[in-house]
Amino acid sequence: MRLHSSALLLIGALALAACNNPNRFGAGGAGGAGGAGGYGGVGTTGLGGANDPNSPAYFSQTVGDRVLFAVDQSTLSPEARMILTGQAQWLASHPQYTAIIEGHADEQGTREYNLALGARRASAVQEFLISQGVAPNRLRTVSYGKERPLQVCSEESCYAQNRRAVTVISVGAGS
């Protein structure tokens, strides 16, 4: 049934979801999982207490470590820009941290195209953070394409959360 719903319907539903739930990744949200960090040699660091505003856990849970995208898009929504502005402010006051921005896609696409699409999304976030004053050498991007979905159902409710870019904080000087 879901398979036959039109693309227009999906986009509509997504736009609605994205607009109505800006708080999805707030303190009570998805738990601030670190995305696919830790796979394949990406360095990960202890998250610290979520109540400590200087901790990466605070960054991921309270500032919000991720932004969501429409189907096949890498354009930043107003909500995404708000979250990223917060990320940039946090990074500005915590210069000891660097970040890897992970771009992801939902499963509705071919593998290699989705790698490229995830890279577009990660890059859109990177450019915005740089425009907000974050030094380029503190940011790197990587795409996981559709290899690391956050949600595993094959419904738009899951796809909407999988089309994401996650800013993963780690300790270390810029590259």
């Binding site: 796979y39 394949g40 040699g41 990406v42 360095g43 890897i100 593998r111 290699e112 790698l115 990587v142 996981y144 290899e147």
Partner: peptide
């Protein structure tokens, strides 16, 4: 991801995340 054989089958190209 996505391995591909060489024309003689002696080598394989693929994509790896081992560097992150």
């Amino acid at each position: 991801l996505a391995p591909r054989f060489s024309p003689t089958g002696d080598r394989v190209l693929y994509t790896s995340f081992e560097t992150g």
